[in-house]
């Protein structure tokens, strides 16, 4: 099981209603159903992946988060999850706004563009970095809006979004991110996991 999903699962209270935006094959949904008493729904843009989810009996709706989040009423979920997808939207800012409208709490995970390997790649090779989490070439990447943990942290502060928890994930290792270790964690984390509230 992906370490990231374990961390997400720990952030979620029992008996809550969860929406997984960009749920993919539904692996996180399955994990949550197995390990928690939750009511979980999914939204996914890829027909193939939606069919896979539905074939497993998961309640997943085919749709694009940039348009289809509109159909969910305000605060209709206890948690809305966006796992490593924010960077792929045309307008991440609007999507975050919608997530915070639909969910009482929002869990966002971002592949950290500030990781030292990426910095080194760019600095010494002078080429766009390709890593395990970001395996694409610059010309075919779906990731339109890459950001660092620091960037996202700044974004939340600027927009008045409350950050409840920030967790760093590096390989199998998780650790807390605090304002005092932020610069350092931004260098060593592969993934940043944020628990937000409006």
């Amino acid at each position: 099981m992906k370490e990231e999903f374990k961390v997400i699962s720990k952030l979620i209270d029992e008996k809550s209603r969860v929406l997984d935006v960009g749920c993919g094959d539904g692996i996180l949904m399955e994990y949550l159903l197995k390990n928690k008493v939750v009511d979980v729904r999914g939204l996914e843009i890829s027909k193939e992946k939606v069919k896979k989810c539905l074939s497993n009996g998961l309640a997943v709706v085919e749709g694009n988060a940039e348009y289809d989040l509109k159909q969910f009423p305000d605060l209709s979920f206890d948690y809305v999850i966006l796992s490593q997808t924010l960077q792929a939207f045309m307008s991440p800012e609007n999507v975050i706004k919608d997530l915070l409208r639909v969910g009482k709490k929002v869990i966002v995970t971002i592949p950290n563009f500030g990781h030292w390997k990426i910095r080194v790649d760019l600095l010494f090779k002078g080429e766009m970095p390709i890593t395990k989490n970001l395996p694409y070439e610059w010309y075919n990447t779906p990731n339109l809006h890459m950001c660092t943990i620091q960037d996202f942290y700044n974004f939340c502060n600027n927009k008045g979004i409350n950050i409840f928890k920030t967790i760093s994930l590096n390989g199998q290792k998780t650790s807390k991110i605090t304002p005092s270790n932020l610069k350092y964690k931004n260098l060593i984390s592969e993934l940043g996991i944020f628990l937000l509230e409006k």
Binding site: R17, K47, V50, K51, L58, V60, V61, G63, Q71, P73
Partner: peptide, 18 residues
């Protein structure tokens, strides 16, 4: 129909088959 169901938090799956 999907939208109407989502509006009341119903358990709904939807796919458009190509």
């Amino acid at each position: 129909i999907v939208i109407a169901l989502n509006a009341i938090g119903a358990d709904v799956g939807f796919v458009e088959i190509k």
